[in-house]
């Protein structure tokens, strides 16, 4: 007799689990192409409009108090030689704002408008770091410095293994 009641309860719980991991106060439209929304201020209006953002940001933890997702923990890259990286492709990734965007923080030889908060990479080839070490730094530097600002490009799935191999080859080539 009370079965429908439990059915409703389970359906409700299942819906919560299915609706995705983002918190209830996130600016998200589950049916929008990238889910993440960006506000659009409409002049002389009491309502705030929302538009799809260029990138889906729902997979990573937000600042919401309702967000119960932990920070993905640091990962060892498990680099296997040989490197097989392409220097030219690595440079393109380093300068591309949508991919590596290394230039936003690092001074790179010969490139315009570098950031300054990352370590200088000038003359990197002379420092004698192993490819495995450089690869790990790009993949997830938190294993080397737990309080690093550098994004964990491998662990967070921002770059592919080949991207990181190309970047490693590029960084190891810098004069």
């Amino acid at each position: 007799m009370h079965l429908p009641l439990y059915g409703l309860l389970f359906a409700g719980l299942a819906l919560c689990a299915w609706a995705g991991d983002w918190p209830a106060d996130a600016a998200v439209d589950a049916h929008a192409p990238t889910r993440t929304l960006t506000p659009k201020v409409v002049v002389n209006s009491g309502r705030l409009a929302w538009e799809p953002y260029k990138r889906d940001l729902t997979p990573w933890p937000s600042l919401s108090h309702l967000d119960r997702r932990p920070t993905p923990p640091p990962q060892a890259a498990g680099f296997t030689p040989p490197l097989r990286g392409d220097v030219a492709r690595g440079r393109a990734i380093a300068l591309d704002p949508a991919r590596g965007n290394c230039i936003a923080c690092h001074v790179l030889p010969g490139e315009d408008w570098p950031g300054s908060l990352g370590h200088l990479l000038l003359g990197y080839r002379k420092r004698g770091h192993s490819d495995a070490y450089v690869y790990q730094q790009i993949y997830d530097r938190r294993l080397i410095n737990p309080n690093t600002v550098m994004p964990p490009f491998g662990t967070f799935g921002l770059l592919t293994e080949q991207d990181i191999r190309d970047l490693t080859a590029y960084v190891q080539s810098l004069d």
């Binding site: 996130a26 506000p39 002049v43």
Partner: peptide, 27 residues
């Protein structure tokens, strides 16, 4: 446009690759 502090925080979040929240959220 005219931007409240919470809309500025949304812009900060988007620029830093963080899923933004609705204006007036507790956070």
């Amino acid at each position: 446009m005219l931007q409240s502090l919470h809309l500025r925080l949304i812009e900060c979040n988007l620029d830093a690759g963080v899923q933004p929240l609705r204006p007036g959220s507790r956070a």
